[in-house]
Every structure is written in C-alpha cells, then in structure tokens.
Computed example of a mutant assay.
Amino acid sequence: MATLDLVLALVLLLSLAAVAWPFLPYPLILRALPTKPEHPAPGPQPSASLLFCAYNEAAAMPEKLANLAMLKARHPDLELLAFDDGSSDATAALIEGQGDLVALIRGPGRSGKAHGMKQLAARARGDVLIFTDANVLLDADAIGNLLARYADPEIGGVLGSLHYIGEGESATASVGSLYWRIEERLKDEESRTGNVLGADGSIFSIRRSLYPDFPDSVLDDLTVSMAVVFAGKRLVKAKEVIARERLVAARGDEYRRKVRIAARAWHTHRHLRPQLRRMRALDRFKYASRKIVRWFGGLFILTGALAASALAWRISPWLLGAGMLGAALLAGIAARAKSGPVAALADILIAYAATLQGVAKAMRGRTVTVWNPAQSR
C-alpha cells in the first residue's frame, strides 16, 4: 500500500513540475546560459515588404490603414501588400479605397491565411518580408528598428514585441495579457542565448531568400519563422520593435481561438518533425520546453488531479468527497465570475483545456485552415 501511495505522490509531483516547467525552471535555465552576441556589419539597410491577410476586418481597417500610411510616410520605399480571404464585409473595399497605398490580392474565397501569405510572398520584392496581422498596429519606429537588426549577416529573421491593449476589460483579457508578458520574456531570453523557437503572426520578419515552401494546412507563422533556424541562421527578438493588438475579452472567443491555434500548431509540428530532429541540442531543448511541454499542460493537470484524488481516497473517502464538493463549488463561482483570482484561475484552466483539445483534434488528423476574427476584441 505504501508503495502505491509513493507512486501516486510521485505522479502528482511530476505533473506539477511539468505544468510549471515552461514558466519557472525553463526561464531560470535560460538565464544561466551565456549571451550570444550579434555582429553587425556596415552596409545599406535592406528593402522591405510588409504583408498581412484579412477576413472581415472592416472594423479594424480604418485604424490599420492609417497606421500603414504613417509607416509609408516614414519609409517611402516600404512595399505594402494585403490578401483578402473572401471577406463578406467592406474589408477589400476599404483597402482599395486607399488608392495605391496597399497592393491588394483578392482570394477566390475562403482559402486560409497560409495560402494568402504565400501569394503575397511570391509577389513581394523586398529583401526582407515583414509579416503582421490585420488588427495589429506598429509603432512609428518599428520598421526602422527591425531592419537595423539585419546588419548582422547571420541574422535571418527578427521578431518584434507585442503589447496588448485592453488587459483590464475582463478576466480572460487579464489572463491573456499575463500569459503574453511571460511569453515575451521567454522569447527575450531565447533570443539572447541564440534563437527564438518560432514566431506568432503579430509581427515578425525573415529574409525573403529563406521563405520556405509549405502546404496550406500548416501554421504559417511557425513554419516560416522556423525556416530561419533550419537554414542555420539566427532568429532573434527585438524589444524595440513594438506592435499593439487588442485582447480577446470573451471566454468563448478565446477558447475557439486556442483550439484552432493548437490544432494547427501540432499539425505543423508533425510537418516539421524531420527538420526539428536535425536542430542543435540547445534549440531542441528550447522547442520542447516552450512548445511541446505546454501543448500537453492540460494532460499534466488532469493526471495530477487524478493522482491527488486517488491519494485523497486512500487517506479517507470523506476527504475525497470534501475535495470534490469544494472543486464543484469553486467551478460554479468561477463560471459566473467576471473578474478576480477565481475567474483568472478558471481562464487559465480553460486555456489549457482548449490547447489540449486542439492538439487531440490534430492527432486525429483534423486541422483548421480558415479563421474568423474574434468579436470581443
């Protein structure tokens, strides 16, 4: 009996350690690693093309287009390209209404972001391809600061820093903001020690010569950014390249978004697996710590909860009953709470559940090609 108790306690501790790994042990290990310096060389700044895809983003377009006009005024040679994925609102008309500010490609219907970005990349002429989202705004100095990092010939890709707007509007937004601040710090440390392991679509860039070929079913942000690492170049993060985006405030919107992203991320992982296996040991460690361990966080939480329940039962069935009653009451309070620590805890668990559901969906051979903008941002 004592042996079973020990096994259950060990499973519980390992589950807790796995959940905590990306947020506590992994950052501490990164901080202990030496800095890998950059080596800029004199020369002209590369030319650039800025690309984004849009679907039913009419509400965001006026602010987005004004932001692009400001960037174009500061960088007259910046090429601006957009792909409309069959919008049913005024998105395409608003872009075309700006004259020659943005070159627009209209898709034949819903074909997805990966397909759209490939169309834009094939048309782009800049030495550097800058990828962003339709609802993301770039600070005035973002383009100049980003291109300056390409003075080092070993740098093949540069990520920016995403700052969220509206973090106090709901518990979901607050949790999303906290999660992203942790994510940004991890990327900073990964960049300092060599490579960041993957980018999100808000703001990142690569040298056009490194743009890979890939199917429409993968997560293009991860696939394109990892091509830099696979090519033996550095993928770094620039804190001074700032993008701003409004947070998703509703749990339903955020849940669906995380399921979609996780499904496509796991599908992409399987597509990239042969190249991932050939990465350097440090990069494989980073990738596993920040991505694979986190994708299965919901499973670790479930395993830990089952181990804790079994231990409680072995101590006393009454203890297990009291614990289950307390969890049920807490779940009921969390379902109605709009703010505070209980609501935040609920959103954290919901995020883990959504990610696990997305991974499970991808493991069954299903993925998501198209997307819909969140209504609550």
Rank of each mutant, 00 (worst) to 15 (best):
A344Y: 02
A354E: 04
K291M: 01
A353V: 06
S170G: 05
E63D: 15
A140P: 07
R294I: 11
M70G: 14
C53F: 05
V175A: 12
L222D: 14
A59E: 11
E183P: 04
T35K: 15
T223Y: 14
N195W: 00
L138E: 13
G43T: 10
A374R: 05
R149A: 02
P212M: 06
G323H: 06
A249W: 03
A82T: 03
R234Y: 02
R280Y: 01
L299N: 10
A171L: 04
A90M: 11
D253V: 05
L306C: 11
L138Y: 09
L50W: 08
S88Y: 06
A288T: 00
P40Y: 01
W21T: 01
T223S: 09
F230W: 08
E245T: 12
P46H: 14
L68D: 14
A351Q: 11
G304R: 10
N56A: 02
A262Y: 10
I143M: 04
Q45A: 15
L162V: 10
L235K: 05
Y55Q: 00
I242H: 04
L319E: 14
P274H: 07
S111N: 11
R185G: 05
R273I: 05
A334E: 12
K286W: 00
L8F: 10
G176C: 13
P108Q: 13
R123Y: 08
W313S: 02
A328S: 09
V7I: 15
L162N: 02
L247Y: 13
R110V: 13
D188M: 15
P34D: 02
R208K: 14
G304S: 08
A2V: 07
S289T: 00
A243H: 15
K286F: 00
A353D: 01
G144E: 15
L320M: 01
P40D: 15
L299G: 09
L306Y: 05
S177V: 04
Q357H: 15
E167W: 05
L276G: 03
W180Q: 15
I315V: 14
D216Y: 07
W21N: 00
D89R: 02
M61C: 06
